[in-house]
Design a protein around this nucleic acid. Structure first.
Lengths: 110, 110
DNA sequence: TTATATGCCTAAATGAACGAGGTATCTCCC
DNA sequence: GGGAGATACCTCGTTCATTTAGGCATATAA
């Protein structure tokens, strides 16, 4: 149904991109995506954590337990080389796809 | 997985938009989407027909049997008022969403 | 001390899309 | 006559991401 959230398939790209710069822990990843999109992209935890595990299982992400700035225990994720390659390919595919959809949809709601 | 196809959730919008102008039959809808996106958006029949039935069940589409220009039997779909309203809302949501994703992803693959 | 924010997680249910199969008709060509 | 290929419809089983709704633990601010 999609209710009011993400279009399936984009979460992985968003996650990979978000941890591309520096390792981040799950909770912060969700927050970062939400913040940077000004609330438009809301990442449910029930989707976020499974996605992180999925990406790690695929070798696109690596994780290590560490401490946050405030001293809390957290699992930090960083992108692997494979993850980076995957991100680039998928980002390209996304750009192509969303351009195609936008072109077709042009004028519907503007 | 998504292999190489649609990002889930956009098919409904594409269908509604495609039949917005004039009633079309399923096969032609798939072809129209494929053609207008220059092959980037490929609509599998296993996704297309269930989607048409789904949309009709929801009252967003209406169907009637008719004949194509070449004289073949085909089921023609047209958008209902509810379908039009839904299309406009979803297209807006799509625009907002894809803008947000593109903004975040900016610079990844360009 | 109690609520709120941080931080992690899982399990059941939903449902969309994929892949692969099937039927039938029509046209074109050998 | 007989096959190939395009048109046109359909369904079924599987896969898989997301939603909804929980649970657990710790820290901090009211």
């Amino acid at each position: 149904m999609s209710g009011s959230d993400l279009f399936t398939g984009t979460l992985d790209i968003l996650i990979l991109h978000t941890v591309r710069g520096a390792p981040l822990h799950g909770y912060a990843i969700g927050k970062a995506i939400r913040d940077r999109s000004e609330g438009i992209l809301s990442v449910e935890e029930g989707a976020l954590y499974p996605a992180l595990h999925r990406l790690e299982r695929k070798g696109l992400l690596e994780s290590a337990w560490g401490k946050t700035e405030t001293g809390r225990k957290a699992k930090f994720y960083r992108v692997t080389d494979a993850g980076l390659a995957h991100l680039e390919a998928e980002a390209e595919r996304w750009a192509e796809f969303s351009d195609a959809v936008s072109t077709i949809l042009e004028g519907v709601s503007r």
